[in-house]
Structures are given as structure tokens and as C-alpha cells.
């Protein structure tokens, strides 16, 4: 099992190798993809990428939390959280690829 960490650079490189674009433009396209997805999520939209997965935004209500160290009660304000649900294809590929 690998332990490498891929970054934007690796994704840009893959884009660069797949289409005849400059490295700079490839990097910009990777950035645009992430930007469009983020903007949609911030506006409350669900982002559904077939055969990859679904990102959705859920609203959490306020609750009373506790500082585990001091036991002190702290209010947790209502907030929005992002959840990712992987597609079956992703789950299958990840399960199969990491089997030994």
C-alpha cells in the first residue's frame, strides 16, 4: 500500500499529459474545477459527480459541547458541514486496490 500524497501539482501534471495544454494552463484548469465545486457547495448546492461521488452540505443545529480537558461547557453554534459520499465505483476500486 502506497503512502504517497498527491497534490494539485500531480493533478495538473496528469491534465498536462492528457491534453495538449501548457503546464500553466493545466494548473489553472485544476484550480477552476475546485473553485466551481467550492462555489456551488458554498451556495448550498449538492455537487454530484457520476462514478466519483456526491458532496453535500448539511446544516447542523446548535448544541452544548464540552471541553474534554476542562469539562467546561461551551456552546456550539449552528453550522454547515460538508459530507462526501463515494460512488460505488470509487468504493470498489479502493477496496480492490488495497486488498492484499
Amino acid at each position: 500500500m502506497g503512502e504517497k500524497t498527491l497534490t494539485r501539482m500531480d493533478l495538473s501534471e496528469a491534465v498536462y499529459n492528457s491534453v495538449g495544454l501548457s503546464r500553466n494552463e493545466s494548473a489553472q484548469l485544476v484550480e477552476s474545477v475546485l473553485q466551481h465545486m467550492s462555489d456551488a457547495l458554498v451556495s448550498g448546492e449538492t455537487v454530484k459527480i457520476s462514478s466519483f461521488g456526491t458532496f453535500s452540505v448539511r446544516a447542523k443545529t446548535a448544541r452544548v459541547g464540552r471541553n474534554p480537558k476542562t469539562g467546561e461547557e461551551v456552546p456550539i453554534h449552528p453550522r454547515r458541514v460538508l459530507t462526501f459520499r463515494p460512488s460505488h465505483l470509487m468504493k470498489d476500486r479502493v477496496a480492490a486496490g488495497n486488498k492484499r
Partner: peptide, 29 residues
Amino acid sequence: DVERIVNTIFDEIIEAMAKGDRVELRGFG
């Protein structure tokens, strides 16, 4: 080509995870 670019990005992420690698996209997740 745009389709190809988008597919490449998502495929690359799946391929990395299939190898047990992480994909860290600062600011996004």
C-alpha cells in the same frame, strides 16, 4: 478536451486512492 480534463482529474484521484495514496487539495479538502 474539457471533458477529458475533468475526467482525468477525477480518475487520477480514484487511481491514487486505489494505490493507498492520499490526495491533498489545500483549501478544498
